[in-house]
């Protein structure tokens, strides 16, 4: 059974309705996407801005409602999950946002931020919640005194660790990571990737990893799906995709990525 399987998923944003011009034109953010995330694997979705990858991710965690198509999360129909209420989604699938600082409420301490998933999704009592928060801080390698502090006291990398801890709190089987490292400095980015990989192995989760950075994707994913203007143009194992890209757009993406040491290629020539 796949962790996530979507078939012909489409999301259309209706244009604004105006009194004088009637309905504005529609935007098809995601078109006919068919995708499967296998249990225990990391599937990367790669694309540039406006390719619809974030909309796809938001649909999978129930923050957006698909216009049409079929979506099954951990074997359950997403529509059925939605009917069960907002908590049903949160128990099986969680989300890590791109900007860790804005995903943490600036007026709450870290323990107040970690409390709701433990209380509402897991139904733990007070003592158990407290113990669990300490475990979570351990898991993301943050000191225990983190809990009493406010988000602005942490750097971007630390804030992202806290955000990851919040996602882990619900003990989900699947985590959707939306550009989790692109707002971080390179050295912090590397450490965060390593942490994510270790956590996935430890808690036996599946990752859907959204990114625009091919090198990052290659280092963490098993399979890669390339998205271009709302459609998935190519899906392949990471190794295969980076060695022999088939689609024109994938080739262009790969050749555009700046390289530290250009293999057998001169420096960029003026054009």
């Amino acid at each position: 059974m796949d962790a996530i399987s979507v078939t012909n998923l489409t999301k259309t944003f209706a244009g604004g309705w105006s009194l004088f011009r009637g309905r504005g034109h529609e935007v098809r953010a995601v078109r006919d996407v068919t995708l499967a995330l296998r249990p225990g694997e990391t599937l990367a979705v790669v694309g540039e801005s406006g390719s619809g990858k974030s909309t796809l991710a938001r649909m999978m965690v129930g923050l957006e409602k698909p216009t049409s198509g079929d979506m099954r999360i951990a074997g359950k129909d997403a529509a059925a999950l939605r009917a069960e209420g907002p908590r049903a989604f949160g128990r099986v699938i969680q989300y890590v946002f791109q900007d860790p600082v804005s995903s943490l409420n600036p007026r709450k301490t870290i323990d107040a931020i970690l409390d709701p998933p433990l209380r509402l999704l897991k139904g733990y009592d007070k003592v158990r919640r407290r113990a669990r928060m300490k475990e979570l801080m351990d898991a993301v390698q943050m000191p225990a005194n983190t809990l009493e502090r406010y988000p602005h006291e942490f750097s971007g990398g630390q804030a992202q660790r806290i955000a990851i801890a919040r996602a882990l709190a619900a003990e989900p089987r699947i985590i959707v990571l939306d550009e989790p490292v692109s707002a971080l400095d390179v050295s912090v980015q590397a450490q965060t990737l390593l942490l994510l990989e270790d956590l996935r192995a430890e808690f036996k989760m599946s990752y859907l990893f959204i990114s625009h950075d091919l090198a990052v994707v290659e280092s963490i994913s098993d399979r890669v799906a390339v998205m271009y203007s709302g459609e998935i143009v190519e899906t392949a194992s990471a190794e295969q995709l980076f060695r022999t890209p088939r689609h024109e757009y994938t080739k262009r993406l790969l050749s555009s990525a700046p390289r530290l040491k250009p293999p057998g290629r001169g420096r960029l020539e003026g054009g």
Binding site: S187, A190, Q191, L193, L194, E197, A215, E218, S219, F242
Partner: peptide, 21 residues
């Protein structure tokens, strides 16, 4: 040295994370 080691290189694949470790 450390900064450069932290930049994943295309083609390095999962070896990158082992290098970071």
């Amino acid at each position: 040295k450390r900064l450069i080691a932290c930049v994943p290189i295309p083609g390095q694949g999962r070896a990158f994370l082992d290098a970071i470790r």
